[in-house]
Simulated scan of single mutants.
Amino acid sequence: MSQNRVNTLFGAPDTLREKGIPLYIQVKKSILSAIAEGRVTGGDTLPPERDLATYLDVSRVTVRRAIDELIKDEVLTQRQGAGTFVSERVEQPLNHLRSFTEVMEARGKTITSKWLDRSLGMPHEEECKALKLAPDQEVVRFYRLRFADGKPMALELATIPSCYIINPFAMEGSLYDLLEQQGCRPVRALQRLRAVSIDEQRANLLDIPQLSAALYIERTGINHEGTHVEFTRSWFPGDSYDFVAEIRDTL
C-alpha cells in the first residue's frame, strides 16, 4: 500500500500529536474516523501494522494496541494469514418481520446455504411448548449454515409442524417463501435475544474462534390465524450484526 493511500485513509502524521492524549488512542480515533467517513468500509483490509507505524511515526506496539482495542470493540476483525479487516455489520431492525434471505437480498448480497439436517420427526419438549403441539404431532426440522457473499453469517435451526410442509426436501431457498406458498407465512413473531459464548462445533461452522461472543435468537412465528407455525433458533457472529429497534414513549 502506497504512502499516499495510507495518507488518504488515516490523515497526515502530524494530526496524531494531540497533547495529553495517548498515541494509541489517537491511532484508534483515526481509524474510527476513516470508517465513519466511508474512506474504509466493511470488508476492507487495513494497511499492515508495519506500514502504519512507519507512516504515522509511532511504534508497532502503539498500532497493535489500537487495533487490539478495535477488535475487542468488534469494529475490526482478523483472519489468520489474511490480515485485519473492517467488520462487515448488518443492521437489522427488530420491528419488521423479515427472513434471513429478505434481509440479505435487500443489501444486495448473494445468499447460499449448506444443509446440516433436513428431517421429519417427533417434537422435543421445547418445540412442543413453542409451537403448542402434542408430543405425537410430527415436525419438520431445517438446520443450515447461511452465507452472504460466501461469508458464514448465521446458523439456523427451524422447526415447523409437518402439516404446513408438504415436501421438506423441496425447500432450497427462503423458508418464509415456502410458508407463504402454503398460505401460512408468519405475520408476527415473539423473539428472545441473548448473548452466548459459541461452542466449538458452531464456532467451526461460523469460522469464528471458540467461545467468541455470539448472538442467539429464538423466534416463534405466528400466522394470520394466530397459529404458531415456526420455531427458529439462530446463532449469529457477534461482530456481524447490529439489531435496531425504535422505542417510543407511550405516556
Rank of each mutant, 00 (worst) to 15 (best):
I198W: 03
S212M: 06
A154V: 13
P161C: 01
R98E: 15
D57L: 12
S212A: 15
T62W: 14
K132D: 13
R219S: 13
E91I: 09
E74Y: 00
L178Y: 11
L206F: 07
I166F: 10
A53W: 04
H96E: 15
L9C: 11
D199P: 01
E218D: 09
N4Q: 11
F10H: 02
R202G: 03
L190N: 15
E102D: 15
R64C: 12
R248W: 07
M122E: 15
A195T: 12
R194T: 08
Y164Q: 05
T84M: 04
V140Y: 06
R60T: 15
F169G: 05
A245T: 04
R219P: 04
A36N: 15
V187Q: 07
I25Y: 06
R192Q: 15
L94Y: 11
M104W: 13
H224V: 10
T227K: 15
T101P: 09
P13D: 09
R248D: 12
A213R: 12
R79T: 05
A53S: 10
P13C: 08
L9F: 15
G11M: 09
D177T: 11
I31T: 01
G42Y: 06
A134V: 00
G183Q: 10
K19S: 14
R192N: 13
D68N: 13
L215H: 04
R64P: 07
I31P: 02
R219T: 12
E88I: 13
I35L: 13
H124Q: 13
V58W: 08
H96T: 14
I25E: 11
R118L: 06
A148M: 02
L16R: 05
Y143H: 09
A106P: 00
F169L: 11
R60C: 14
A213Q: 11
E138F: 11
A195H: 10
E180M: 14
E69I: 03
G121W: 03
F142H: 03
C184I: 10
I111D: 02
S240V: 00
L157Y: 14
I31L: 06
I21L: 09
G81T: 06
A170I: 00
F100W: 05
T45C: 10
D177Q: 13
R118Y: 04
T232F: 04
H124G: 14
I67W: 00
E156K: 09
L155K: 02
E74Q: 04
L190V: 12
A170N: 04
G42K: 05
L179F: 05
T101C: 08
W115R: 15
A53R: 01
Q92I: 14
Y24S: 09
S87M: 07
E37P: 07
R185I: 07
V63Q: 11
I198E: 05
P209D: 12
D136W: 06
P237A: 01
L70W: 02
G150H: 08
S33D: 10
D207A: 15
S212P: 00
D242Y: 11
V6M: 03
A82P: 00
V187I: 10
A82Y: 03
A213Y: 08
G121D: 05
G11I: 03
V187S: 09
M153L: 07
L193C: 07
A213E: 13
S59M: 06
A214N: 02
R194Y: 10
H224N: 12
R39F: 00
P47F: 03
D199C: 03
T84C: 09
F10A: 07
Y241G: 01
V86L: 10
W115Y: 14
C128W: 01
Q181H: 13
V140E: 06
A245D: 09
L133M: 05
L175H: 07
E156T: 14
A195S: 10
